[in-house]
Amino acid sequence: MLSDILNAAGGPVEVAGVVIFLFATYRALTIGRVLVRGVYRDRAFWTAGTLIALILLTAAGSLPPSNPLSPLSFVLIFVVLFAFVDSSIRVVQETDFFHRTPLGWQRVRKPFYVVLVAFLAVGGSLALLESANNVLYIVGVLLWFGAGGTFLTYSAAAMVVGARRTPDRTMRRFVRMLGFAIICMVLFFTVWIPFAPFSLTVQDFGSLISELFIPAAAYFLYLAVMSLSPVGRVEKDVVSTSRASGSAVVSPDRP
């Protein structure tokens, strides 16, 4: 009985997470559309791309591992995450008045892209095609997660180093919110583990607790998106006046 209730509660939690993800994606796209400088626009669009990839990854979680879409979603998330961090580092470099390159990023970014895509392609193919062969499977998975993990860790370190150099407070907030989102994602993947040895009800409770971190991660990503550029609210009862024509445009809030 309790187990059924816990299972039923998991659904709305996941739906809430996906709704927040979708709204954050929409916000990132609308902010990106109106930014003028390419480097800032790219970051907004890659943020949207990352959110879309996370939604796909969540959806692919219900697929069996033998389905080609399942490993493909992992390849996609690695590449999109890398491009997203790369675009953020370029913004960090732009907002640093001395335009310093964090951890030699300008030199390594292009080789990293090539090597990352190659390793993911080879590792993914081995893991998918040779799942019957244990050794090749392990080599494939190691290539896959090893390359992805190494490059993402290096790029995340470069982003944090750069963010510490920039005086831009919105950029720092962006990185901080991103950090919270990543922590929530890690908790989502790990919190259920201590509950695993216990009874089914306790396991379901653990699953529910871990699922609560999905909307939390989505919310922090939403806050990160809203830090792409400060967004104000139009004051009510304001008349927009053109001096030349003397015409006035009155907001609808005014009778």
Partner: peptide, 22 residues
Amino acid sequence: LLGTDGYSDRSAILVVGPQGIG
């Protein structure tokens, strides 16, 4: 919109805004 054909002579203009806005 300014109705004055631009900025005044011998003036200093400040434009404030976030990064990337234009």
